[in-house]
């Protein structure tokens, strides 16, 4: 137990945790949206994120991005990366809904069948990306029958620099961008769900599907919408991840997905603001825990948090609600 390290640099660890948690929160939104409307854990959502990182990798490779480009170009690349990742992730999420979930919904299948399908689908996506896209980054043509499943590096878009210091806590440009971007994306989503016509439809279906249908809400469209929205958020997370960590792998989604799901449950699954709170909280807890024990135990901490939350407060910190409460 390394308490000296933790309390000696408490501010620094908190900032690290916040910027990590912001990414979890963005992914968690995908779980929360789908759960809020369909009462379904979209297990394949972690792969939506994974596809997003590969989209970023692909577009940066295609554009010939090199390490540390001038700032104007860097911004351009980031914006292009965001758009492409959002398109790819949103498209993947939509495809998952159409291929896997819609036929099951027609048959009113039990929830476990949805979950098993999603697990199968996520395995398929992981394997497709492991087998077909081994090294897009190498500049070579994707070798179709390679078996490479190793980590693929990405160019550094922004050089990590300390922007300012508050009381010995250094805040880097990347941390700031990650945090601000994530919060802006979430604020946009919150506005969309709470203030627009489409958002009202989503909330109506979440509250009561039958009544919503009677009131003229097109349910299928709402379901497609939430999958796409969740996918776009995962795409944004993928861009931020690529910028901050600079690598991807076909199996990257599994652990991140579990953590994001933990974040969603922690904040109250189905609750958009809960996802933000849960994500940031989990990020901080994880960094603190990893400092206290050692970074080897990082993944265990998230799972323990999940079990503890589910045992003592299964509705999460802010409670489950997409439709209720803020109708």
């Amino acid at each position: 137990m390394n308490f000296d390290e933790l309390f000696g640099h408490l501010g620094q660890h908190t900032v690290d945790g916040l910027s990590k948690g912001a990414i979890y929160a963005l992914i968690a939104l995908g779980y929360t949206l789908v759960y809020g409307v369909l009462r379904l854990i979209n297990f394949a959502h972690s792969e939506v994120f994974m596809v997003g990182t590969f989209a970023v990798l692909g577009v940066w490779t295609a554009l010939g991005v090199e390490n540390n480009p001038p700032i104007g170009q860097a911004v351009l690349f980031l914006v292009i990366g965001l758009v492409v990742a959002a398109l790819a992730s949103g498209g993947t999420a939509l495809a998952i809904e159409r291929i896997a979930y819609r036929p099951l919904r027609r048959k009113n299948a039990p929830p476990l069948i949805f979950l098993i399908t999603a697990i199968g689908l996520s395995l398929v996506l992981v394997e497709v990306f492991g087998l077909l896209l081994p090294d897009v980054a190498g500049g070579a043509l994707p070798s179709m029958f390679g078996r490479a499943r190793q980590i693929v590096g990405m160019p550094t878009i922004l050089k990590q620099e300390t922007l300012f210091e508050i009381g010995g806590t250094q805040i880097t440009n990347i941390q700031l961008i990650v945090f601000v971007c994530a919060v802006v994306m979430m604020a946009l989503l919150d506005w969309f769900i709470n203030r627009t016509r489409y958002g009202r439809g989503v909330r109506a279906v979440a509250q009561n599907p039958e009544t919503a249908a009677l009131m003229g809400v097109n349910q299928e469209r709402v379901i497609m919408l939430i999958f796409v929205l969740g996918g776009i958020m995962a795409g944004a997370a993928a861009l931020l991840w690529s910028m901050r960590f600079g690598f991807t792998q076909n199996s990257i989604g599994f652990v991140l997905g579990l953590k994001a799901f933990t974040a969603a449950v922690l904040g109250g699954i189905g609750n958009l603001r809960g996802a933000l709170v849960g994500g940031l909280f989990l990020g901080i807890v994880e960094v603190y825990g990893a400092t206290l024990l050692s970074s080897q135990w990082e993944d265990v901490i998230a799972f323990v948090v999940l079990v503890v939350v589910l045992m003592f407060r299964p509705t999460g910190l802010l409670g489950e609600s997409l439709g209720r409460a803020r109708a």
Partner: peptide, 14 residues
């Protein structure tokens, strides 16, 4: 094989 297992799961479930 992992790809095949995943596909088998999805197809059987649907």
């Amino acid at each position: 094989r992992w790809l095949a297992f995943g596909l088998a799961m999805v197809l059987v479930m649907i």
